[in-house]
């Protein structure tokens, strides 16, 4: 496997009232070709900002102030607007959370799929329509020929999301960013869409960067997972490592707080407090204020991502001290 995307020490700042707020600090990720890489975190942790900055889609107020994003070895940050525009949809595509607000309500579904095909390939409208209908069939849209002339509001949420996926894969991109692709959908439709994403990966060897707050979806879909908290990556590892041996107190807390059948009858663990807002973030470990292991050191100095096992990195001072994690495990029971 080779690297397709690597994010090197990326820091993103937000300018607000002449203050510089850190949205993402020092994020490093490498995504291998053909894998499904997951980014999980609660709302406000910066997972969407991270994925948007790959294609320079973040709001103007947010700037990547240091670090670099390399796609197939080339820096995305040094590319001109025109070069980026050429890549969007062709090399890297995105599926957004809310299809209704991402599709243009005044254009037919077919037009919107043909639009992206014609933007990247010099072919006639008729040929493009043929490709569009093929893609629509591939994503499981029924009656593709009729649906081609329908408007987005005539479709259900699941079908709209399929249209979004059709637009995203119309030019057979190498890299697909799916930002909460199933959050707005029902469970049975979610299962269909996730199944479809897996199939796209299998057939076209597309690399998928999947962003979600739902650990269940992550566990089902991903090969590797990065856990984000307050603009930082606190743990990164294979899905098995994250689920079977979560090592950061935040990851552990998240795992414990999901209601699963075996936890019925006992009170759920809950992480005290809330995610700190941008203004409240201080130096030190971002999780310190909610972590019941925290010592003075956690508030003053920032832990770095450190290897705890092969391909498993954790950013916590306690991750190496075994007796503490034992005590921590005990505190749950």
């Amino acid at each position: 496997m080779s690297e397709i995307l690597s994010i090197h020490h990326v820091t993103v700042h937000l300018e607000q009232n002449r203050r510089k707020l850190t949205v993402l600090s020092d994020i490093s990720i490498t995504v291998q070709k053909g894998e499904i890489f997951g980014i999980v975190g609660e709302s406000g942790c910066g997972k969407s900002v991270l994925s948007n900055s790959i294609l320079d889609l973040q709001p103007k107020k947010m700037r990547v102030s240091s670090g670099d994003i390399l796609f197939e070895g080339q820096s995305m940050l040094k590319k001109s607007k025109h070069q980026l525009q050429k890549m969007r949809g062709k090399e890297i595509s995105m599926i957004f959370q809310n299809p209704m607000s991402s599709l243009n309500p005044s254009l037919t579904v077919g037009y919107q799929i043909v639009e992206i095909i014609r933007a990247h390939q010099n072919i006639s409208k008729k040929e493009a329509k043929g490709i569009a209908i093929d893609v629509m069939k591939k994503v499981g849209l029924p009656r593709a020929e009729q649906l081609f002339y329908d408007y987005p509001h005539q479709l259900s949420g699941g079908m709209q999301q399929r249209v979004m996926i059709a637009i995203a894969i119309a030019c057979q991109p190498k890299f697909l960013i799916a930002d909460e692709p199933t959050t707005a959908l029902d469970v049975t439709i979610q299962a269909q869409i996730l199944h479809l994403l897996k199939e796209i990966r299998r057939e076209q060897n597309t690399t998928i960067l999947l962003i979600s707050h739902d650990l269940g979806v992550m566990g089902d879909m991903c090969d590797r997972i990065a856990v984000m908290y307050a603009g930082e990556i606190v743990e990164i590892g294979t899905t098995a490592q994250i689920f079977e041996n979560p090592s950061h107190p935040y990851t552990k807390g998240l795992m414990e707080s999901i209601p699963t059948p075996d936890k019925k009858g006992n009170p759920l663990y809950s992480i005290p407090g809330n995610v700190p807002s941008l203004q409240e973030r201080m130096g030190g470990c971002p999780f310190a204020s909610r972590c019941h292991l925290a010592i003075d050191m956690c508030f003053t100095s920032k832990p770095q991502l450190k290897k705890v096992a092969k391909a498993h990195d954790v950013s916590c001072f306690f991750s190496e001290m075994e007796e503490v994690s034992f005590e921590y495990a005990k505190s749950f029971s």
Binding site: E42, H213, I258, P259, L268, S270, N274, V275
Partner: peptide, 14 residues
């Protein structure tokens, strides 16, 4: 969010 959800579920239970 998940971590807040569990707080509310516990509250409702108690």
């Amino acid at each position: 969010d998940v971590s807040v959800q569990s707080q509310i579920l516990n509250l409702l239970k108690s």
